[in-house]
Amino acid sequence: MRARRLAAVAVAALLAMTGCSSPAADEPIGGGSSGPAGPGSGAAGPVTVLAAASLTESFTAIGTRFEQVNPSAEVSFSFGGSAGLAQQIIAGAPADVFAAASPTTMKTVTDAGAATGTPVTFARNQLVIAVPKGNPKGLATLAALAGSGIKVALCAEQVPCGTAAGKALSAAGVRLTPVTLEQDVKAALAKVKLGEVDAALVYRTDAKAAAADVDGVEFPESAGAVNDYPIVALEDGPNPAGAAAFLTFIRTPEAQRILTDAGFQQP
């Protein structure tokens, strides 16, 4: 009983805090900017961004820069498998921006009428073979992954990195039986980091982010399975101005440079 009452108080306090913070943060800009949102204008208060797991590092960096340019804005991210995030959005998760790892996943959101405007592709990603540091098994091609005694982790076909892996493998004419089908790209990479598998097909960006433990081996067939990353503002987002500002910021040269540094390609 007491725990429940405490929880209720905590929730009430939280609501009061969020309720207060946005008008207070609006005030300083309220006088001037009502035009189209650009970098450094129009964004205030909390902006909630749901983004694919593979965007974790680059979006965190972009979020920090965005907050520096828009001091009264506060970005919070929720990273996860694109499809799971899409389901949350359709179910009414209170978020402003959605960045997916595949157009197919984005389509489920736009089809459900949960997005405003058309999604824009802001980055592209390719698969690499992630192997433990130093590539102890000397895996250099997709065909080598089908060798006997090689343990491979792939993403489940339901998530974008799994779809891309399927495409690349069929383009290479390689049939392999993975030991596990992971729920997102970070989970597949974690299995390589822990040394439980010899290789995983992950995005180049993920291999790069884990460069301390993992090497990324490029392979030609990945060109046939390039993933487009679309981003869109959400219909029921509590902060449309903030969403618009974030969408504009993502296409600035500065944000694009952060993405390229992380291993993404420009659209």
Binding site: Q87, Q158, T180, L181
Partner: peptide, 22 residues
Amino acid sequence: FAGNFPGRTQTMPLAVYLALEQ
């Protein structure tokens, strides 16, 4: 710990979670 592979380690809760993705 056991990963997710249909027929070998994919139990119902794992199947539910992955079905939810799609």
